[in-house]
Design a protein around this nucleic acid. Structure first.
Lengths: 304, 304
DNA sequence: CCCCTTTTTTGTCCTGGACAAAACAAGACT
DNA sequence: AGTCTTGTTTTGTCCAGGACAAAAAAGGGG
């Protein structure tokens, strides 16, 4: 009868994997190499991590996504980590996430959050809502979390409600069904559903015919889907944490597998910098450029 | 220079884990014990699985979710597996998934699928749409996949579009904001977002104040959220594949952590049978009973 | 039939070594 | 300056095979 894992204060290695996204193998090798995290063991010799360890690991994970190397972070004390976070944030000023908006997210106030979205929608339109509110807010939320201003459930709440609002607005949007017909998804390693949805909104607002398969689609299935659905464009989204070389490999394979008449568009924070000169691939630099890409496609295909 | 994993025909063990949901450790121990799957090795001795192996594994995974033991399935040949599938399906008749609907899903026809949803919405209302179309359709889709009538991307497409439609309808629904205030989520091990959304629809249609945190919420955070949001009810959803004992452990911990004034509702295919007599927990037997639960709550709290 | 205990099956965790893949650094070329 | 090599360091993933926890099935009273 060993210690049970259902409690609130000590987590098994698989629970930590789930919470932090760090593989069990990685957690073990970090312990071996850097001496952190160093969990206690239960009677059977199995690791049990404290909540402090888990939150430090989550912090480390985020900083790694922003480009920091694990070697530095794992050697650092809590105080040194704090310094790194402050240095990280010195440059940016989260102007959006304040006042009413911050309160709404922290108190899980569905109505208040929707009110802000609704008002922005009326003021700036659907595309403006995405480019001027949701996109920058995503960044701010991540940073506020890093500072400890908001917690995990607050972030879940924000993601869930934003998704609902965007999907809702999308549903009531008149569908013109003009070309191009775009197939939208991410590679299997990429979770990032909100980014995908933002692109879907931009495309639909532009009047394009948009078919989203959701995230995590195997390469072979992307190809099949594009053919059976008769897509003009396959659009992929990459978050900033996506490993560059894997992205390139996937994109090249897909480019080869697709007929040349089908365009391949690539966007998201992870695509911006590093995927420049791939032949036969259109890089969309920011969420605001989706509209331009659609227009360009239409001009190129105007002669029918 | 070893074989690269980006290709379309051979998958590394981590890719198979991603595709099938079976842990690497499980795949290795199956190979050791049952001799299947037996992948070839690259120059470095690392496993490379064929597409056939992967689809057989996916099949096995689904049958296990329906209660079959791995020992039987892994010893079975392809033909024997086929027999099991047929036996499995003999009982049920997928009446819904046919004709227009099946074609729409297979050809990724967004408009056609929405048309069916829209019509059902007009005929049967929001709750009827969920209970009479979406809920049974989910089951049919799973079975059609098992038979090989539809593929992985078709299923993704269906899930994505259904989610969009439900969320869209929800957004345009007038929010009365009557009590009870329900916090909606799943335990960390449970992915099943569509089931959660169906419950949200039922609750909202009933006029309840519903706050969804999306799936995969840690126990400690559920507690915190329920308190800060001032929830009257915490509702959890379980899919049929969820391990019973883990569910019970989680529910008990949560029940203890929550104040007694906050009710705990548990629903979904996984909750129906096995979670009967937990004290202080309300089991919702089917998606159709959500409405009744809300009414019961209101009567019990009518005296203010 | 339901509840409890024992046995069997099955999945997860362990160690420590090896090495693939990614990131970085330094030099060479345009 | 940028960008393409090529070498070096860091970092993550894989492997083998043993151990054992957890889940399921089977057995045995009440």
């Amino acid at each position: 009868m060993s210690a049970h894992a259902s409690g609130l204060s000590l987590l098994t290695i698989s629970a930590v994997e789930r919470e932090t996204g760090l593989l069990k193998d990685t957690l073990r090798v970090w312990e071996r190499r850097y001496g952190f995290p160093k969990p206690i063991r239960d009677d059977a010799g199995e690791r049990l991590y404290s909540l402090e360890d888990v939150s430090k690991l989550r912090l480390i994970r985020r900083l790694m996504d922003q480009g920091w190397r694990p070697g530095k972070l794992l050697a650092a004390s809590a105080a040194e980590l704090q310094l790194i976070i402050e240095a990280e944030q010195a440059s940016r000023v989260p102007a959006l996430l304040a006042g009413e908006l911050l309160d709404a997210i922290r108190s899980h106030d569905v109505e208040a959050l929707r009110r802000v979205f609704q008002q922005t929608l009326l003021e700036k339109g659907l595309q403006g809502l995405v480019t001027d509110l949701v996109a920058p807010l995503n960044v701010d939320i991540g940073e506020a979390w890093l500072r400890g201003d908001i917690g995990v459930p607050d972030e879940h709440f924000y993601t869930e409600q934003t998704q609902s609002f965007l999907r809702g607005t999308l549903a009531s949007y008149a569908r013109t069904g003009k070309p191009p017909r775009v197939l939208l998804t991410t590679l299997p390693e990429e979770e990032h559903a909100l980014g995908l949805l933002m692109v879907e909104v931009m495309l639909t607002a532009e009047g394009a015919q948009c078919c989203s398969l959701g995230p995590r689609m195997p390469l072979a299935d992307i190809r099949t889907s594009a053919l059976t659905a008769g897509a003009d464009v396959v659009a992929l989204s990459f978050s900033s944490a996506f490993p560059v070389r894997q992205a390139i490999a996937g994109i090249r394979t897909l480019r080869e597998a697709l007929p040349p008449t089908v365009e391949l568009w690539v966007g998201g924070a992870g695509a911006r910098d590093k995927l420049r000169n791939e032949t036969g691939v259109q890089v969309i630099r920011g969420i605001g450029d989706v509209g331009a890409a659609v227009c360009a496609w239409r001009e190129a295909h105007a002669g029918h």
